[in-house]
Amino acid sequence: MLQATPSDTLSRVKAIVADLKHKPGALLPILHEVRDTLGYVPENAVPLIAEGLQITRAEVHGVISFYHDFNTQPIGNHRLQICRAEACQARGSRELEHYARERLGIDYHQTTRDGEFTLEPVYCLGNCATGPSVRIGNHIHGRVSAERFDAILDKALTVPIDLEPLTEGDA
């Protein structure tokens, strides 16, 4: 995630829209790309996307607000998700959630004061045989105890992790 000036932001959004608008059902691919590039979907991107796709701003706003993935405010350096679903509950995710909130001093959908972590709930990471599970960036961790949770935070803070979105080229 790079820091961008406002005009920079808009030119990037324009480039993404121009690049993807020909796709059938282009809105979700565009929103994903904007979020992956800027870290969020800024409000001033909405008119540009609407114009590019020849739909109303209300329609764009409606889609952004429908999906959990499209945050409209910047988040911390690391998006930290804890699985709240049943298979992880059976392995102690409720205790892990409690520990994470205490440890970070924030609740879900909040960012730590130092701007490092934004805590979010997630409903299943498909890692259900080895819960509780946590996702940070594009890395998923299994059997996360309090100690392992601390280790995940430490690693995020000490080693620069790859924040580039996973795309075809990364394989």
Binding site: A26, L27, L28, L31, V63, Y123
Partner: peptide
């Protein structure tokens, strides 16, 4: 095509609307 964190999109008609770029 990537979903965006909505469980309901596993329901086939929701999935189709999502694929078309809608809620």
């Amino acid at each position: 095509r990537l979903g965006a964190g909505a469980y309901i999109c596993g329901e086939e008609t929701s999935l189709l609307d999502s694929l078309e770029g809608k809620r």
